[in-house]
Nucleic acid binder design. Structure first.
Lengths: 343, 343
DNA sequence: GGCATTAGCCGAAACGTTTCGGTTGTTGTG
DNA sequence: CACAACAACCGAAACGTTTCGGCTAATGCC
C-alpha cells in the first residue's frame, strides 16, 4: 500500500505538500496538485483511514445500530435501510458499520461502547420511540453527532429526516370521512414507535374535527406483517359494529387485510374500504392490489440521501445550525375506497 | 475519552505496562493486571481503534460487500446474513462494515478500493458464482484475508463455510425417485449462483444413477421469490407431460408452487409432490405449509458463527492451515411427498 | 558468595497522517 | 530601492497505540 511518503519521494516534494495537495488546500500550486493527483492514481494511493482518523478525528465511518428484537418482523424496511444508507454513504466516501444489538442488550450502553472506541464519527438512529428516546438523549448529552430517521418529539433540535406522520393519519382519516365513513378502524405499527403514535394523533384529530367519537376498539397497534394484518381484520369483522373502512399502516398490513376480506366473501371497496400508507417497499406495490389500493405515498428510499446529508453536515461542523428535512407525502386515489354501502 | 497515558498517570505505571497488561502479555504481574483492569473500567477506557490499527494492523473491522442487483429479490436471506454476521462479530469485538455496491459497479474494483484503505482486515464474501468467482481470485492474489459463505469450486483452498449442495440435490431427487416418481422438475436459484449449480449437478447425478433421462424443460433456474415460483409452476402444469413431483430451491419458491397447485384445483402430495430445501428463514417455515412440506433442512443461521471463526482465524494467522466448515443437512419427511398417483 | 536466570518493569521508536509555524523567492507599491 | 505582501513550499510535532531492546532486583544454584 502506497503511503504519502512514497508519493513524496516519487515526486521529490515534501510529505506536507502532498497531503495538502490531496486535500485541496489552497497554498499549493495548481500544477503541483495536478502532478500529485496523477501520481496518486498511478501508484494506487489511498489514504490510510486509521492514520487520518488518529490525527484529525475524521474516520469516514458512521454506524447504525439495529435492535434485533424490534426489527425481526420487518426485514423489508430494515433491508431497504441498510442497502440504501450504505449506498449513499459509499458515494460520499464514508463507510457504514452495521451493529446488531442482541436481544436484551442495553441500547444506550451499546451506543456508549461504540462511541468510546473512537472509530465512529456519527450515528444513524432508526425507529425512534414515541416517548422520549433514551438513545437520543444519550447521544445529545455526549455531543456525539447523529441523525434520526423519524423523530421522538414534534419539533426536535437534533438533525432528523421524517415525513409528517400526524398529517398522514389525518389525511387518511379525513379522506374516508369525506366520503361518509363513520366507523373507521386504524391498524398501524407498535405503540412504542414514534411514527405510529404520531399517526394515531392525526387520526384522533381528524375524528374530532369531524365530530366523530373515538373508539379504542377500532385501533390496533401491532407488528406490521401480512399475517398480523389478516388476523386483526378477522377480529374486526367479528365486532358488534363492523367498521366500514380500515386504515393500514403499510402495504404488508393492507395485504393481510385484503386477504381476510375476500376470505369472508366480501369485496374491498364496495363492502369495506381500505386505505393505507405506502412507503414504497418492493414487496407489495399499492398499484398491484386488486382493487388498486388508495394510499398516502412517500418512499422510504427518499430518506437516505437527506439522512446522509444532515448527518455529514453535523459531523463536519458540530455547532452549525441543525439541518433537518421533511419529506413530501401525497394522496393517491385508487379503487379500494368507496362511499360506505347503504345497509 | 481516556487514553493509555491517562491510565498510566493514574496508576503511576508506564504506558508500556498498561498496554501489555490490557493485552494479557505475560511479563506483567497478576496484581498489576488486576489494578489496570480495574482502573480501565473505572475511567471508561476503551482502546482507540485507529491508533491500534495504525500501529499493529489489527483494526477489528471486517467488511461484507453486497451486490445490490443480485440481492434485491431476496431481502430475507440478505437480512439474515447482515444481522447474523453483525451479531456474531460484535460478540468477538469486531465491527462489520456493510458496503452496498451500486448496480453496474465493478465488484473487483470495489474490493480493491476497500482493501487499500487499510481499514479492513478481512472480507466475508457471499453468494459466490458458479464459475470461478473473480472476487475470490482477486482477494487470493492480493493476500487479503477472506472467508466465503458457499464456494465457487468443489475443493477450495480458501476458508469457507458451506453445505453439501450436490448432496442436497441428490437427496431431494433420490427421495422422490425411490417413491416412484419419474418426471421430476427442479425449480432453483439462478444458474450463476454456485449453490444452484451444485444442486443441479446433484440432481443430474441422481437421475443418472436411477437410469432416468435428463429433460432440460424440467429445470428452471430463477429468482427465488414466491411470485416466480407460482409462475414457473403454472408453466410446468401447462407442459405436455406434467411432472409428478417438483423440487423447490427454498421455501419461498415452494410457497408459490403450492399456491399455483391449489389455484388449479389440485392437491399437493396426492396430485403433485413437492419437496424443497429449507434454509430456516422465518417467513415460510416448512412445517407450517399445508400439507407440511418435506425438506432437506439446514439453517443459514448456523453458518455465521463458523464463518466468523474461519475468517478471524485466517486474519490472526495468514499462513495457518486453512480452516473451513461443512454444515449438516438432514431430510425431514412430511406430507407433501407421496408416491405418484396412477393415471 | 558468585553467577546465571528470570519476573517485572520502562523508554523510545514507529505506524501514516495532518497541521503549526516557519522559510524561501517573487511580485507589487510607495 | 526598500519593504510589504504573497504564493509556494518545508520540517517537525503530534495523535494513541504496540513492541523492541534494555534495565533492575530478586531468586536459584553450585
Amino acid at each position: 500500500m502506497a503511503t504519502l511518503r512514497d508519493l513524496s519521494k516519487h515526486l521529490g516534494i515534501s510529505v506536507t505538500q502532498v497531503s495538502r495537495a490531496l486535500n485541496g488546500h489552497d497554498d499549493v500550486s495548481a500544477a503541483t496538485k495536478q502532478r500529485v493527483a496523477e501520481a496518486a492514481r498511478e501508484l494506487g494511493y489511498s489514504a490510510n483511514r486509521s492514520a487520518r482518523m488518529l490525527k484529525s478525528g475524521r474516520s469516514g465511518i458512521v454506524a447504525m445500530v439495529i435492535d434485533t428484537a424490534a426489527e425481526r418482523d420487518v426485514p423489508d424496511v430494515l433491508m431497504a435501510g441498510v442497502i440504501g444508507l450504505s449506498t449513499v454513504f459509499a458515494r460520499r466516501d464514508t463507510q457504514l458499520i452495521v451493529h446488531a444489538m442482541p436481544e436484551g442488550a442495553d441500547p444506550v450502553d451499546t451506543y456508549a461502547k461504540l462511541a468510546r472506541s473512537g472509530l465512529i464519527e456519527g450515528f444513524i438512529v432508526v425507529n425512534p420511540q414515541s416517548a422520549a428516546d433514551p438513545r437520543i438523549a444519550f447521544l445529545t448529552d455526549e455531543g456525539v453527532p447523529f441523525a434520526v430517521h423519524g423523530r421522538d418529539r414534534t419539533a426536535p433540535d437534533y438533525p432528523f429526516v421524517d415525513i409528517d406522520n400526524h398529517a398522514v393519519g389525518n389525511m387518511l382519516t379525513t379522506h374516508l370521512m369525506t366520503l361518509g365513513h363513520r366507523r373507521i378502524a386504524l391498524v398501524d405499527g407498535p405503540a412504542e414507535a414514534a411514527f405510529s403514535a404520531a399517526r394515531l394523533r392525526g387520526y384522533r384529530a381528524a375524528l374530532e374535527t369531524g365530530g366523530l367519537p373515538f373508539d379504542p376498539q377500532l385501533v390496533h397497534q401491532v407488528p406490521m406483517t401480512e399475517l398480523v394484518g389478516s388476523q386483526i381484520m378477522a377480529a374486526l369483522l367479528d365486532t358488534s359494529v363492523r367498521p366500514t373502512a380500515v386504515i393500514a399502516g403499510n402495504t404488508m398490513l393492507a395485504a393481510g387485510i385484503y386477504a381476510t376480506i375476500s376470505a369472508h366473501g366480501l369485496h374491498v371497496g364496495t363492502d369495506i374500504s381500505v386505505i393505507a400508507h405506502d412507503d414504497g417497499l418492493p414487496r407489495h406495490p399499492s398499484a398491484d392490489f386488486v382493487p388498486a389500493l388508495t394510499v398516502t405515498e412517500s418512499a422510504i428510499a427518499d430518506a437516505f440521501e437527506p439522512l446522509a446529508d444532515v448527518l455529514l453536515a453535523r459531523i463536519s461542523d458540530r455547532r452549525a445550525p441543525t439541518q433537518s428535512r421533511m419529506l413530501a407525502v401525497r394522496l393517491v386515489q385508487r379503487n379500494s375506497v368507496q362511499p360506505p354501502s347503504q345497509r
